[in-house]
Design a protein around this nucleic acid. Structure first.
Lengths: 151, 151
DNA sequence: ATTGAAATAAACGGTAA
DNA sequence: TTACCGTTTATTTCAAT
């Protein structure tokens, strides 16, 4: 993982579909070694995959909320049960387990406030082991998901 | 934005580098209309771009924290000043403006706890308009950034 | 550097809402 | 009529050896 690899990762995080030819020019190599490095980075798991970045509004997902979850107990089984159930809810885009209280933070997307209300009442409230949760509405994505710093 | 477009978006969110040929087969069209749809989705802004998904550990970024920020004032200038300054910090991967208190939530990645300490003291603490902030360490990414539901 | 595959773009006719 | 598909053709670009 030298400086060139980091530059490759930086470029691919911004332009996931850049051709090997163009990428080679940007990192100052020829095509062959560039291609080899990409293959190695993929094989090593440094590059997990590629994805299109979608505008959620295009899918009608205009509402975003953060949900803080506090669990009844913090034993292993309770936590794992919750994590598994949460992973099965497609509207939960991200979920973090935190140190301290609350135990989890969820990032949730729905079409609108009404869909969110339904989701909270019919799905989130039924997640196993939950003592209580607090929702906070997201007003604005100031910094939307951004590439990792490579420098 | 019909069902086929949603299917295209679903596939591209999971396999951003799938070939038009393969994608066409998956959505049940031939290459030409599939390609047209991709072009239109890109032009309409539904597809914002493409990116490689990187393992942050490969970049040595092993530490993640959430930072809740409460501002001194909530006037427009103060908030915008903070947002601009926050956007200039590469370690801030995501930033949300929230309703209520706290005013912002930041997701921050650094190499380790020491780098985070330095970042907090030397950078985050100097962001303009901040009254106080509270850090919470992330124990685990239960659900790492996941595609939007298209159904 | 070469070969084969794939992306891209345009044109044309058919078809269903 | 409008909008979309599918086929075809041609050109370009890329991957891969």
């Amino acid at each position: 993982m030298d400086a060139i690899d980091r530059k490759i990762l930086a470029e691919l995080q911004v332009q996931g579909r850049i051709s090997t030819t163009d990428l080679a020019a940007r990192v100052g190599l020829t095509v062959a070694p560039t291609h080899r490095r990409i293959r190695d980075l993929e094989a090593a798991g440094a590059i997990v995959g590629y994805r299109a970045v979608i505008d959620p509004k295009a899918l009608g997902l205009n509402f975003e909320a953060l949900v803080f979850v506090t669990m009844k107990q913090e034993d292993r089984a309770t936590l794992l049960g919750f994590e598994e159930a949460a992973a099965a809810v497609p509207n939960i885009l991200q979920a973090y387990r935190l140190f301290g209280d609350p135990d989890f933070l969820l990032r949730v997307r729905t079409a609108d406030l009404e869909s969110y209300t339904r989701l909270q009442d019919d799905v989130l409230a039924l997640l196993p082991g939950v003592q209580r949760f607090t929702s906070t509405l997201v007003m604005k994505d100031v910094v939307g998901d951004r590439p990792y710093p490579t420098g």
